[in-house]
Amino acid sequence: MSERMTGGCQCGRVRYSVQVDDDTAYLCHCRMCQRATGGVAAALKQVARDAVTWTREPDYHASSPIAERGFCAACGTPLTFRYLDGSTKLDLTVGSFDDPSRLRPTAHFGWESHHAAWLDTTDLPHLRSDEYQPLVDKWEKVRDA
Rank of each mutant, 00 (worst) to 15 (best):
M1H: 13
M1R: 14
E3I: 15
R4W: 12
R4A: 12
M5V: 09
M5C: 10
T6D: 10
T6Q: 13
G8V: 00
C11H: 06
V14D: 00
S17F: 02
V18G: 02
V18P: 03
Q19N: 11
Q19P: 13
V20A: 09
V20W: 04
D21F: 13
T24M: 14
Y26N: 13
Y26K: 05
C28S: 12
C28E: 06
C28F: 12
C30M: 06
C33Y: 11
Q34A: 05
Q34W: 00
R35D: 11
A36K: 00
T37M: 02
G39E: 00
A42L: 05
A43M: 01
A43S: 09
L44N: 08
L44C: 06
Q46H: 12
R49G: 11
R49T: 05
W54N: 00
P58C: 06
P58M: 08
D59T: 00
D59A: 01
H61F: 01
S63K: 01
S64C: 02
S64N: 03
P65V: 05
I66R: 08
A67Q: 02
A67N: 01
E68D: 10
R69P: 06
G70C: 00
G70W: 00
G70V: 03
C72T: 04
C72Y: 07
G76K: 03
T77E: 00
T77G: 01
Y83K: 11
L84T: 07
S87D: 08
K89N: 14
V94A: 12
G95N: 01
F97W: 04
D98N: 13
D98P: 10
D98F: 05
D99N: 05
P100C: 02
S101C: 05
L103H: 01
R104V: 04
A107H: 14
H108W: 11
H108G: 03
H108K: 11
G110A: 05
W111F: 12
S113M: 09
H115W: 14
A117K: 10
A117D: 15
W118F: 14
T122A: 15
D123R: 13
L124T: 07
L127I: 09
L127G: 07
L127Q: 11
L127R: 09
R128Y: 11
D130E: 13
D130W: 14
E131L: 08
L135G: 15
L135E: 15
D137C: 14
W139F: 08
W139T: 12
E140H: 12
E140P: 11
V142N: 13
V142L: 11
V142Y: 09
A145I: 12
